[in-house]
Amino acid sequence: MPEPLLEVRALDAFYGDFQALFGVSLRVAAGEVVAVIGANGAGKSTLLKCIAGVIASRHDAVVFDGEPIGEAPAFAVVARGIALVPEGRRLFSSLSVEENLLIGGQLRRPGPWTLPRIYELFPALAARRHQPSTSLSGGEQQMVAIGRALMCNPKLLVCDEISLGLAPIVVREIYARLPSIVAEGSSLVIVEQDVVQALKAANQVYCLQEGRVALAGAAATLTRETISAAYFGA
């Protein structure tokens, strides 16, 4: 098996005394789309926060590109090439659409993503580039959040609940763009409550249940029954 781009090894995570993750392990190969599914409170967002450095973990619990980054703070993790699209979009409200994108680009990591390429990927944003980010619809805001993370030119793009609160047609439109992101050389980790959507987009699926990996496997090999058993518990 080739060296993975991201490897999470026996990761434990805590909020104070509460343990949210128990020995979670996960691998993402270059060019792969990995979906993390699970019920509310299963630990999906916590896992992403550990990967992105928002929550510090054991030094070697997160290994990226062969380097242990478990203890690295978020601003150092993104400089290495992991960009997070946070849950709820969380755009900079006093910045325009374009300024939001430029904040993502301020690290000047070399790569394919530039302002014109983002507007090509999400044409709806081009016309609204100078508007305040708060004046956009939910779907457009999600596009800005993805574009902002892409402007970091990440090797790994991590998306937390990008379909949350959006109309199904908008969700389909956003998911239709993911293959062109992968084609530019980024791997993806997506956390998703919409299991059908996740299975369609992903190569590999991990299902979390109460902080543990209950099921892992290639998306094509998983049946509805095994997933629902892992999702809800037996």
């Binding site: 928002v54 703070p73 400089a79 300024e99 430029l102 904040i103 690290l107």
Partner: peptide
């Protein structure tokens, strides 16, 4: 300027600014 943009972004949301590589 990019400098001012970093100030405003950090003022808006410090934790997301960190995610974009800005050490607050």
């Amino acid at each position: 300027t990019a400098f001012g943009r970093a100030f405003r972004a950090t003022s808006d949301d410090q934790s997301v600014a960190q995610l974009m590589g800005l050490d607050s």
